[in-house]
Computed example of a mutant assay.
Amino acid sequence: MNKQKKITVIVSIGVLILVIIGISFWFLLSKKSDSDTGRELTEIDYDKYAEIGYDAEKVDKLVKLIDEIDVKISEDPTDYEIYLKKASIYRSLHEYDLAEKVYFKAIEKFPDFGAAYGELGEMYLGDFQDFEKSVEYFKLAIEKSPYRSDYYRWLADVYSAKFPEKKGEIESLMLAGVMDSPENAATFYSYLVNFFDKEDNMDKAIEYAMKALEIDPSNEVMAKKLKDFQAQR
Rank of each mutant, 00 (worst) to 15 (best):
Y96L: 10
L192N: 01
K61L: 07
S74W: 00
M210N: 05
K85M: 09
S172M: 08
S149Y: 15
A116L: 05
E122F: 15
G118D: 03
K109T: 08
P164L: 05
I23E: 07
V19E: 12
Y208P: 08
R91Q: 13
I21L: 14
S33H: 11
S35C: 02
F188M: 12
F138R: 07
D36I: 01
D34I: 01
G121E: 03
K227R: 11
Y90S: 12
A186G: 03
Q232D: 12
D60H: 05
K166Q: 13
A50F: 03
S35V: 09
M210R: 15
A106Q: 04
S190Y: 09
K58N: 04
A186P: 03
F229K: 06
L226V: 04
I17L: 12
D180T: 08
I52S: 12
L93W: 02
P77E: 10
V71Y: 06
K101C: 02
K133D: 09
A116W: 04
Y96D: 15
N194P: 04
I215Q: 02
S172P: 00
Y90I: 11
A50D: 11
S145C: 07
A161G: 09
K58Y: 06
D47R: 10
A116I: 03
H94R: 14
A116D: 02
Y152G: 00
F229T: 05
Y189P: 06
F128I: 02
K58I: 07
Q230K: 15
S92I: 00
S92R: 09
Y96F: 15
S92P: 01
A56E: 13
R233A: 10
P77M: 10
E68G: 13
A223D: 10
N201H: 04
